[in-house]
Nucleic acid binder design. Sequence first.
DNA 1: CGTGAAAGTTTGATTGT
DNA 2: ACAATCAAACTTTCACG
Lengths: 177, 177
Amino acid sequence: MPVTPIESSPAKTQDICVPRPISLDDIDRHLLDLVQDDAGRSLYELGDEVGLSPSAVQRRLTRYRTSGLLARQIAVLDPRVLGETMTSVVLVALDRESESLHTAFRDEMLAEPRVQQCYGIVGQWDYVIVHVTAGLRESRALSQRLFLDHPNVRRYETLPALESIKVGLTLPLRAPD
Amino acid sequence: MPVTPIESSPAKTQDICVPRPISLDDIDRHLLDLVQDDAGRSLYELGDEVGLSPSAVQRRLTRYRTSGLLARQIAVLDPRVLGETMTSVVLVALDRESESLHTAFRDEMLAEPRVQQCYGIVGQWDYVIVHVTAGLRESRALSQRLFLDHPNVRRYETLPALESIKVGLTLPLRAPD
DNA sequence: CGTGAAAGTTTGATTGT
DNA sequence: ACAATCAAACTTTCACG
């Protein structure tokens, strides 16, 4: 009896843009929570915490990496130790809804090191930007250069952050309902 | 002649809340840029890139850690591999300006794992929150639980993110003027 | 999944500039 | 004060049970 070749069927566009969700058990979620908080632990330590041998932990981490779930490992700096450092949130609306216009705007955000985050949103604003500078003066100068002097920015509003209450990239790992 | 005991004077409050800015040379900034982007490299690789021996690199990294500049090392996950994942930016204004009210609000944000970031801002809004959920439904449910049902939230506005154009915690390491 | 041996990495003492 | 070298300790890797 011929078997329907589900597994070997050519990749659909969706598989490339949005990878197939990986399935995770309780140990996977425990491990991922641990490394999201501190990626500096040894396989031995991690195995100890989740009740697995170092090589079983390694096999799982390798699986997360090859699936693309574990994208990278980064060092997080404390801005307070760098001296005056200010974070600002900026809401931006562009002029027209042309595709190439938005692409150009995105490329500028990607190229500017002081832009830490940029989200495309729906509603009366088009983008939310988080940028980091050495104080109010530089913050205003950067917003002016990026947004005021930009011909396609219709309007923007800068919300200077007094305080960073919670900052991270941790994703919640929901158990399947 | 008696020496003014500047170095041995007791720590001021400011020294505890805002640590003294660390001084960085070109190699420090190069190293920190490298580990902010990828903390998985070996001391040998890092040394190769900046032109130093592994142990010289290690001594510098240790210095960043003990000064608190290098706060931690984390694994970054790609939300697309987890299936439906949605990021929303929420602007929140609280009712009154009481200290304990704000503290309670902050503690809630710190306790909720789906709240990824929270900044205290100035202007017509008090806080900007970034939260991550499994879709529009959960996003609205979370905003409702955190903000609508909260007696002290005067008003809030949710900006659903269609696209995460740039996401990171990288700090710009400006050279001293 | 666990074990264990080989390869690679980090650590710290020592010496030199 | 800071860098390089080297050997010991630890960590990661991977073939096998």
